[in-house]
């Protein structure tokens, strides 16, 4: 591995945590502070009365904003910009949504099963107009199980770096180089967990297939929506969202 010495591993931990802090979109203190700020019954009804396409468009925009932060996270990760551009794109196309799903556990409140969305907290019912109750339920369940691990900000940083830098993504041109970076990040994550006596977390992280399955469900639902409302997707969805998913 290129990061062999302890000092280098510690530098990598610092780099990943700093990259994450600079690109986490919303600070944890702010998300915790907002927990009492719940959507009223009327506001929830107003979301539920929106048309399916309007709600899809809103969610596509919110998701795209989150993904832009993940792109910035990737760019700051030591070694990422040294990969060839094909591989940078392969890793982001496959991993950006997965990173957003992991990051979402910070915006989820397990006490009342709500998530921070457009300035307030709301439950699954807020997203009813999307017409994908099963997908939304699965995403909330995922956040619920991840939030039970009580991951620290640094643990989320290192975990999401490894979600992104995955040498098994199909289509990589310089697989060896990605493998080396992944190996360094694994060392960094393990080192940090040892240092903080949190090695137990490793066995409790969700299997990779769970994130993959959520992303596939999202793509399937988008396909159905795009079939029914091709003009909405074409005219109103963010270009980056279309580039990644449609």
């Amino acid at each position: 591995a290129p990061y062999a010495s302890l000092t280098e591993i510690e530098h990598l931990v610092q780099n990943v945590c700093k990259s994450y802090r600079e690109t986490c979109q919303l600070r944890l203190e702010e998300l915790l502070r907002q927990r009492a700020n719940l959507f009223s019954r009327e506001e929830v009804s107003s979301y539920q009365r929106k048309s399916e396409w309007e709600m899809w468009e809103r969610c596509a925009h919110r998701l795209t904003e989150a993904i832009q932060h993940v792109v910035e996270f990737a760019k700051r990760l030591s070694g990422f910009m040294e990969l060839c551009q094909n591989d940078q794109i392969i890793l982001l196309k496959a991993g950006a949504m997965e990173v957003v799903l992991v990051r979402m556990c910070r915006a989820y409140n397990a006490d009342n099963h709500t998530v921070f969305f457009e300035g307030k907290y709301g439950g699954v019912e807020l997203f009813r107009a999307l017409g994908c109750g099963e997908l939304i339920g699965s995403i909330f369940d995922f956040s619920h199980s991840l939030s039970a691990l009580r991951l620290s900000e640094d643990e989320i940083a290192l975990y999401t770096a490894l979600v992104l830098i995955n040498a098994n993504r199909p289509g990589l041109q310089e697989k060896r180089k990605v493998e080396q970076l992944q190996c360094s990040l694994e060392l960094a994550f393990h080192h940090h967990l040892c240092k903080t006596h949190r090695q137990g977390v490793l066995a409790q992280l969700p299997p990779k297939g769970r994130l993959r399955s959520l992303c596939s469900q999202h793509l399937e639902k988008l396909q159905v929506f795009q079939h029914l409302h091709p003009i909405v997707v074409q005219a109103a969805f963010p270009p980056l969202y279309k580039e990644l998913f449609s």
Partner: peptide, 16 residues
């Protein structure tokens, strides 16, 4: 490359 125009652009921009 054209297929990923926006991603290319985001990756080429400096850290902002």
């Amino acid at each position: 490359q054209e297929k990923h125009r926006i991603l290319h652009k985001l990756l080429q921009n400096g850290n902002s």
